[in-house]
Protein backbone atom coordinates (compact mmCIF):
# COMPACT_ATOMS: atom_id res chain seq x y z
CA UNK A 1 0.00 0.00 0.00
CA UNK A 2 1.21 3.51 -0.75
CA UNK A 3 0.95 6.48 1.59
CA UNK A 4 -1.64 8.00 -0.76
CA UNK A 5 -3.86 4.91 -0.53
CA UNK A 6 -3.49 4.97 3.23
CA UNK A 7 -4.59 8.61 3.48
CA UNK A 8 -7.78 7.72 1.61
CA UNK A 9 -8.56 4.50 3.45
CA UNK A 10 -7.81 5.89 6.91
CA UNK A 11 -9.25 9.32 6.16
CA UNK A 12 -6.04 11.22 6.96
CA UNK A 13 -5.35 14.84 6.16
CA UNK A 14 -2.14 15.79 4.34
CA UNK A 15 -0.21 18.71 5.88
CA UNK A 16 2.88 18.56 3.68
CA UNK A 17 5.29 16.44 1.67
CA UNK A 18 2.84 15.61 -1.15
CA UNK A 19 5.70 14.46 -3.36
CA UNK A 20 6.25 11.51 -1.05
CA UNK A 21 2.68 10.21 -1.25
CA UNK A 22 3.54 7.39 -3.64
CA UNK A 23 6.07 5.78 -1.30
CA UNK A 24 5.33 2.17 -0.31
CA UNK A 25 4.49 1.46 3.32
CA UNK A 26 6.30 -1.44 4.99
CA UNK A 27 4.48 -1.27 8.33
CA UNK A 28 3.89 1.10 11.20
CA UNK A 29 5.47 2.19 14.47
CA UNK A 30 3.64 4.00 17.27
CA UNK A 31 5.76 5.80 19.85
CA UNK A 32 6.48 9.24 21.34
CA UNK A 33 9.99 8.38 22.54
CA UNK A 34 12.40 9.46 19.84
CA UNK A 35 15.23 7.08 20.73
CA UNK A 36 12.87 4.14 20.67
CA UNK A 37 11.84 5.03 17.14
CA UNK A 38 15.48 5.61 16.21
CA UNK A 39 16.39 2.18 17.55
CA UNK A 40 13.45 0.11 16.36
CA UNK A 41 11.41 1.58 13.49
CA UNK A 42 12.19 0.13 10.07
CA UNK A 43 12.60 1.95 6.80
CA UNK A 44 9.30 2.48 5.02
CA UNK A 45 7.34 2.45 8.29
CA UNK A 46 4.64 5.01 9.00
CA UNK A 47 5.33 6.68 12.35
CA UNK A 48 2.34 7.48 14.55
CA UNK A 49 3.09 10.11 17.21
CA UNK A 50 1.90 13.19 19.06
CA UNK A 51 5.30 14.89 18.77
CA UNK A 52 5.11 17.82 16.35
CA UNK A 53 8.58 19.39 16.40
CA UNK A 54 11.29 19.34 13.76
CA UNK A 55 13.34 16.53 15.32
CA UNK A 56 10.55 14.18 14.23
CA UNK A 57 11.45 14.95 10.62
CA UNK A 58 15.17 14.50 11.29
CA UNK A 59 14.42 10.99 12.53
CA UNK A 60 11.92 10.26 9.73
CA UNK A 61 14.55 11.25 7.20
CA UNK A 62 17.48 9.41 8.82
CA UNK A 63 15.37 6.25 9.21
CA UNK A 64 13.81 6.65 5.73
CA UNK A 65 10.27 6.37 7.09
CA UNK A 66 7.44 6.67 4.57
CA UNK A 67 5.28 9.15 6.52
CA UNK A 68 4.45 10.64 9.90
CA UNK A 69 0.91 10.65 11.31
CA UNK A 70 0.14 13.25 13.96
CA UNK A 71 -2.72 12.21 16.24
CA UNK A 72 -5.47 14.09 18.10
CA UNK A 73 -5.57 17.01 15.65
CA UNK A 74 -2.02 18.07 16.52
CA UNK A 75 -0.58 20.67 14.16
CA UNK A 76 3.01 20.33 12.93
CA UNK A 77 5.44 23.14 13.79
CA UNK A 78 6.37 25.49 10.96
CA UNK A 79 9.90 24.07 10.60
CA UNK A 80 8.50 20.53 10.67
CA UNK A 81 6.37 21.39 7.63
CA UNK A 82 9.33 22.93 5.91
CA UNK A 83 11.55 19.89 6.40
CA UNK A 84 8.75 17.56 5.36
CA UNK A 85 8.60 19.45 2.04
CA UNK A 86 12.34 19.37 1.42
CA UNK A 87 12.64 15.67 2.34
CA UNK A 88 9.43 14.65 0.53
CA UNK A 89 8.23 12.77 3.60
CA UNK A 90 4.51 13.44 4.14
CA UNK A 91 3.19 14.68 7.47
CA UNK A 92 -0.39 13.45 7.87
CA UNK A 93 -3.06 14.14 10.46
CA UNK A 94 -5.98 12.49 12.20
CA UNK A 95 -8.38 13.43 14.98
CA UNK A 96 -8.07 9.92 16.43
CA UNK A 97 -5.76 8.99 19.31
CA UNK A 98 -2.80 6.65 18.94
CA UNK A 99 -4.57 3.40 19.90
CA UNK A 100 -7.41 3.95 17.45
CA UNK A 101 -5.36 5.00 14.43
CA UNK A 102 -2.81 2.25 15.10
CA UNK A 103 -5.62 -0.33 15.04
CA UNK A 104 -6.97 0.99 11.77
CA UNK A 105 -3.52 1.05 10.20
CA UNK A 106 -2.73 -2.42 11.49
CA UNK A 107 -5.80 -3.89 9.85
CA UNK A 108 -5.27 -2.03 6.58
CA UNK A 109 -1.66 -3.14 6.29
CA UNK A 110 -2.31 -6.74 7.30
CA UNK A 111 -5.14 -7.21 4.82
Amino acid sequence: MTVRELTKKANLSVFSGEKGLDAEITGGYTCDLLSDVMGHAESGNVWITLQTHKNVMAIASLKELSAVILVKDQQPDEDTLHQSETENIPVLGTSLQEFEISGILYNLIKS
Binding site: L33, L34, S35, D36, G39, Q51, H53
Partner: peptide, 16 residues
Protein backbone atom coordinates in the same frame (compact mmCIF):
# COMPACT_ATOMS: atom_id res chain seq x y z
CA UNK B 1 8.62 16.72 26.76
CA UNK B 2 10.14 16.63 23.28
CA UNK B 3 10.32 12.85 23.50
CA UNK B 4 14.01 12.65 24.33
CA UNK B 5 15.21 11.25 27.64
CA UNK B 6 14.07 7.64 27.33
CA UNK B 7 17.55 6.54 28.31
CA UNK B 8 17.90 4.57 25.10
CA UNK B 9 20.51 6.62 23.25
CA UNK B 10 23.64 4.93 24.58
CA UNK B 11 22.09 1.44 24.23
CA UNK B 12 21.21 2.33 20.61
CA UNK B 13 24.82 3.42 20.04
CA UNK B 14 26.09 0.15 21.48
CA UNK B 15 23.72 -1.93 19.32
CA UNK B 16 24.64 -0.07 16.17
Amino acid sequence: EMGFGAGMGLPNMKNN
